[in-house]
């Protein structure tokens, strides 16, 4: 999305430390990042590198020690349904049906409009026919679709995804990735997607932000200039993959 000029999300010198048993633990140090509108960004790094903390700060669930995150020029100080989280574990409500889960963010929308949007979103994520089902009756992949639908229903500006497919089996994960790309192309939200899976990041992102750990710093930003659906056997794909593994300090990756 380098041709777009409008910055949607801006991380400006963001730092964050946690107090762990009396020891100051620096999780993020001097993070600067500009995300364009409609861009798909992957935050890639090893566990504990602060990538989830970056999302939590951008989502308004945590405050940075220094610096700020702005969306459309407005500093983020609290969560809002303009920017929605899709959680790592299942954040949908097990006590509510698929329909009620998707309608969570549509409480203030008039009845007819709400019904239309909910149905459209459920159709979009491929859950038509499961409106009345409860999450415990659904597979892991379907639950994650409900979660995506719940986020999309409010037409958010930005979607934060924190290893959303981490708990799924590898085949379902592949399907969910292509589904996500299909939905993203249709709706064009700005997506910040956290993952520690190198392949996942290359398959999804416009740009991959590689984080180093302790303290979390941006080690590199890699452009993935490949058209969707991406050819996993292509030379460019392998080249990017090699580059990423090198940045992450992994040798002999095959």
């Amino acid at each position: 999305m380098s041709n777009s000029t409008k910055s949607k999300v801006i991380f400006d010198r963001v730092s964050k430390s946690f107090d762990k048993r009396g020891e100051e633990l620096c999780v993020l140090e001097d993070i600067n990042l500009e995300v364009q509108e409609g861009e798909f960004i992957c935050l890639l790094g090893p566990s504990g590198c602060g990538k989830s903390t970056m999302l939590n700060i951008a989502g308004g669930f945590e405050r940075p020690d220094t610096g700020s995150v702005t969306i459309d020029g407005v500093e983020i100080v609290e969560p809002s349904d303009k920017r929605v989280f899709v959680f790592q574990e299942y954040g949908i409500f097990p006590w509510a049906s698929v329909w009620d889960n998707v309608c969570l963010g549509l409480r203030k929308v008039p009845r007819a409009e709400r019904d239309r949007v909910a149905q459209e979103t459920i159709d979009l994520v491929g859950l038509t026919g499961f409106e009345k089902a409860y999450p415990m009756e659904l597979s892991g992949g379907m639950k994650q679709r409900v979660e995506v639908a719940r986020a999309l229903a409010v037409k958010p500006d930005v979607i934060f995804m924190d290893e959303p497919f981490g708990a799924l089996d590898s085949l379902t994960r592949l399907t969910m990735r292509s589904e996500l790309i299909r939905i993203w192309k249709q709706e064009k939200p700005t997506i910040l997607f956290v993952t520690h899976d190198v392949d996942e990041s290359i398959q999804l992102a416009d740009r991959i932000v590689v984080l180093s750990s302790r303290p979390g710093r941006i080690a590199a930003i890699i452009d993935v200039d490949l058209a969707h659906p991406r050819d996993l056997a292509s030379e460019q794909y392998s080249k990017i993959k090699g580059e990423l593994y090198e940045l992450l300090g992994v040798k002999d990756w095959g």
């Binding site: 989280f85 574990e89 954040g91």
Partner: peptide, 27 residues
Amino acid sequence: ISMVHQRSAMNFGLHGIELFRRVVFPA
């Protein structure tokens, strides 16, 4: 009540009675 559900509720702007009716009580 799990952190994820609490955060979901915050994320979708649930407050007061509605927060109790839709999340705290059913959870």
